[in-house]
Simulated scan of single mutants.
Amino acid sequence: MRNPAELNPAQVAVVIPCFRAKGLVGPVVAGVLRVGEELGNYYQLLVLVVNDACPEESWHEITGHPQVQVLHHSHNRGVGAATLTGLQAALEQQCQAMVKLDADGQHPPLYLLDLIPHLLGQPAGELALVKGSRYRWPSPPGSIPWARQLGSILLEPMARAALAYRNLTDISNGYLGLNQLSCRYLMAAQLGPSLQQRYLFESSVLVRSAWLGLELREFAMLPRYGERWISSMESGAMVLPLLGFWSQATLSRLLRCYMASVSLGSGLLLMTALSSALAGYLWITRVGPEIADRTQVSAGTSSAFTTACATALVSLLLLFLYDYRSGSDVKVLRFPALLRDLEKKQSVD
C-alpha cells in the first residue's frame, strides 16, 4: 500500500527570474529537476522560469519538461517584478511552498533537498522567511568578492537598525523560501511597505517581512561567484540608493514603533529629542556667543548645557539598548546539504 503522502504530493514552486543568463540558466534548471528526482514522490516540483525580456533569449536553453513553465514579460521590468510574477503564478496554482533562486548559478539547487521539507514542516499559522547566507560558514579568503564584503560591512548595521532583526547577515542574498501562507501575506498589496521591482527587491522583502512580523531564518551556504558576476557595489551605482533606502526604512520603523504607540522607547526617544533641543538652544543663544566673545560662561548656563547633553546621551544609549532588546533573533539553520556541498567543493578543488 502506498503512503498517502505519495498519492497527494506537496507541490512546490521554484521561481527563477531570467535575464542575461545565457549558458547559466539551463544548468540551474537541470539541477533543480535532479533535486526533484532525489526528493522522490513526496514533493512535486514546479519550475517557473520568468523571462524578463532577456535580450540573449536565455530561456531557449530550457528544454521542454512537464515540470517547467516559462513565463514572459513583454519588456524588462526588473528582478523584483520577475520574482513577483513567478510567486503570483505559484499561488494561483496552489503551490504549498515557494523558493526563489537566481539563474546565474549563485544559489545551488542542492540546498532545496532540506529547504523544501523545512518550509512544508512549519506549523499552521506560522509566518517565516527563510533565506540563504554566505556568512554563516567560514569561507576561504577571496571566495567572496571584496565589493560584496565591503557592502556588507557598510550596510548590514543599517539593515539591522531598520529591521530589528538581531544578527542579520547577507542582506542581498536572493535565495528565499516561503510557505504558502507567508507568501500570501508578503504579496498582499494592502499590507506594509511596497516591494521594489528591481535591484532593491531583496531588501524590500526583508523590510516588509519585518513589518509583518515574519520570523527570519538563515541557512548557511557556500558562496559561489562566477566570472560573469558583477556587483552593483563595485560600480558604485547602487551605493547611494541603498544608503537612502535603509535610512528611510530605519526612520519609518522608529516612527512606527515609538511615535505611533506609547512605550518605554517612546519616552526615551522624547527625552532624547527634548534634551538635544535644549542643548542646541543653549549652545546657540548662550554658550556659543559667550565663547566667541571670550567671556566666561556662567555657572548656571554651563550646568544646564552639560546636564542637557548628558541627559540626551544617556537617553540615546538607553534607547539603543531598549530597541536592541526589543528585536528578534535570526534563527540559524545548518542543513545536511551544506555538508554535501562542502564535500563536492573539496572534490573539485
Rank of each mutant, 00 (worst) to 15 (best):
G280E: 06
A220C: 00
A249D: 03
Y225M: 00
P117E: 00
Y225G: 04
V32W: 04
A337W: 00
P145D: 04
F201D: 01
L278V: 13
L338H: 06
L24I: 07
Q11C: 15
M259E: 13
A299N: 07
H118Q: 12
L338V: 13
V50P: 01
C54T: 02
P27D: 08
L316C: 05
L178R: 05
L119N: 06
L206S: 04
I16P: 07
Q44W: 12
S143M: 10
A13I: 00
L270V: 12
A237E: 06
R334N: 09
P55Y: 10
V15K: 08
H65E: 12
L264R: 14
I116N: 09
P17Y: 04
S303H: 13
I116F: 09
V70F: 09
V14E: 06
R20T: 12
G86I: 08
A82W: 10
A308M: 08
S235F: 08
G267W: 01
A10N: 15
D104M: 05
R253K: 13
V49Y: 05
A220T: 04
A337G: 00
L45E: 02
L319C: 09
R148A: 03
R217Y: 09
S143C: 13
I62G: 05
V68F: 13
A30K: 15
I62M: 02
R2V: 15
E92G: 06
F201G: 01
P241Q: 04
G36H: 04
R34A: 05
T250L: 03
R228L: 11
Y175D: 08
N41G: 14
T295R: 14
L150E: 04
A277D: 09
V297S: 02
E61D: 10
R224I: 15
E227R: 11
D102P: 03
I116S: 00
D349W: 14
